[in-house]
């Protein structure tokens, strides 16, 4: 598989705190990769570097054959990398439709593209269509997560970076959202997904990478990791116990 995203020796630091250290990571065209790890492992920091929210202190990021290291977020969205942040972060006072329109900002001149994309996201998330003119802040948690993903899809990214889409949602809603993620991937969008819910993420992803204190400690096909005792002990057994 040709790599859509290739990250070499990525290092992210906040002043004296190094959050990600010399990380190598690749996401193939059309692939789903899960990024797992405990709290503070550096998962969000990795996504923030990939979407240009923080400038890496070291390493290189190549996307679709181009060096995109250190580009600002608007340039990266324009090239097809979209980051759906942790905690949804929809624009609460703005309507659902306005949130979606902002998601399509980089394509604002192409009305036909926006119309088609809007129809596409309504097909994926029919609930949003019923709530089009409602302030996004009044949606339920699950609906807000749907909106956050739909908003990210409005520029039709080639790579979607998802940070904990299951956070705070009921299991049935999580199932629904993960089913939709599979459908999105089925249309050719590659996904890099960060999850606390390792079980769901491993079931969705083709491959997974495990971070610990900013460093990659494990990598492999999802099925292999799902039965790896180190993963079972650290991320799956305890998660089972909680439920």
């Amino acid at each position: 598989m040709t790599a859509l995203l290739r990250v070499e020796s990525l290092t992210v630091a906040y002043g004296p705190v190094t959050a990600v250290r010399a990380l190598d990571l690749a996401v193939g065209d059309g692939e789903i990769v899960a990024l797992l790890g405990a709290n503070g492992a550096g998962k969000t920091s990795t996504l923030r570097a990939l979407s240009g929210l923080v400038r890496p202190v070291g390493g290189r990021i190549r996307f679709a054959g181009e060096d995109v290291t250190g580009l600002p977020p608007d340039a990266l969205v324009g090239r097809g990398i979209v980051h759906v942040p942790e905690g949804r972060q929809v624009f609460g006072p703005l309507s659902v439709l306005e949130n979606l329109e902002l998601g399509g900002f980089t394509q604002r001149k192409d009305r036909a593209f926006l119309r088609e994309t809007l129809a596409f996201v309504f097909e994926l998330f029919p609930r949003l269509k019923e709530r089009l003119h409602q302030p996004a802040g009044t949606l339920s948690g699950g609906e807000q997560q749907m909106l956050a993903i739909a908003r990210g899809l409005m520029s039709r990214p080639r790579l979607l970076l998802l940070d904990e889409p299951s956070m705070g949602l009921a299991p049935i809603v999580v199932q629904d959202i993960f089913r939709t993620l599979r459908a999105i991937n089925g249309r050719g969008t590659a996904i890099l997904i960060v999850e606390q819910n390792a079980k769901a993420a491993l079931a969705l992803a083709h491959r997974a990478v495990v971070l610990e204190l900013g460093e990659k400690v494990l990598e492999g096909p999802s099925e292999a990791l799902a039965s790896d005792p180190r993963v079972v002990d650290a991320y799956l057994a305890q998660a089972e116990g909680r439920r």
Binding site: P72, V84, L102
Partner: peptide, 19 residues
């Protein structure tokens, strides 16, 4: 709309590809 979005959440606004 982008102005109103920045007032709510500038980081999320940047993630939309908005300068």
């Amino acid at each position: 709309k982008a102005m109103r979005a920045i007032a709510v959440n500038p980081t999320a606004t940047a993630l939309m590809g908005i300068p």
